[in-house]
């Protein structure tokens, strides 16, 4: 393990994690809203927002999947040191992080069971950018409708059709985060 893995955690974990969680919760409660999520300095290519989400939500109880280009020694070491989350394949993952293409296929992740829909994976999708434009979102947490740049509208619609089962998404880019829970209905423009 390189010593860089020891750097870049929350300087004041209880307080920084509380602030990060507030941003993450606001994002999940208000799908499409873009929040700022700072405080973590993870190794490249992990974004600051994805790093903060991982520090806030992951620990030895949450198996994680690192997809594609994120499955590199620097990121593995950093996550292992700071969270202790076991690194696993998609089928066992509680959290998965990666670029959209690397996270495919979506049907490899847990979507919960009809009696326990909460036992589903949360995907942290690294995006080139996040913008309040593109697909139209409606549903719980959204006053009328809102817009968010999504990586794949058809896939999100298929996921929403599984409700109350399904995957929940955080979309991250640099220090910004938005969320798309399974409850959100997605339409093309």
């Amino acid at each position: 393990m390189q010593s860089e893995a020891l750097e870049g955690g929350f300087p004041d974990a209880p307080v920084d994690a509380a602030r990060a969680f507030r941003a993450a919760m606001n994002a999940m409660a208000r799908p499409g809203r873009i929040e700022t999520l700072a405080g973590a300095v993870p190794p490249a290519p992990l974004s600051a927002a994805a790093g903060a989400l991982i520090l806030t939500l992951c620990d030895p109880e949450t198996p994680m999947h690192l997809a594609g280009g994120l499955d590199v020694a620097g990121v593995r070491d950093w996550i292992t040191f700071h969270t202790g989350a076991p690194l696993v394949g998609p089928a066992e993952a509680v959290f998965a992080v990666g670029q959209w293409a690397d996270l495919q296929p979506l049907d490899g992740y847990r979507i919960g069971t009809s009696e326990y829909p909460d036992r589903s994976a949360t995907l942290i999708v690294e995006m080139p950018e996040l913008a309040p434009q593109g697909a139209v979102l409606t549903g719980p947490g959204i006053k009328e409708s809102t817009r968010l740049s999504l990586p794949d509208v058809a896939a999100m619609r298929r996921n929403a059709a599984l409700f109350p089962l399904g995957i929940d998404f955080f979309l991250t880019s640099q220090d910004r985060v938005a969320a798309l829970p399974r409850s959100t209905r997605v339409e093309d423009n």
Binding site: F21, A24, M25, M28, A29, T56, L57, T62, P117, D118, S120, T122, P140, G141, F163, P164, D168, P181, R182, S183
Partner: peptide, 12 residues
């Protein structure tokens, strides 16, 4: 608890 809250929000 935070993970439970997020799943709760995802499945109202």
């Amino acid at each position: 608890i935070r993970r439970a809250i997020l799943k709760g929000l995802a499945v109202p």
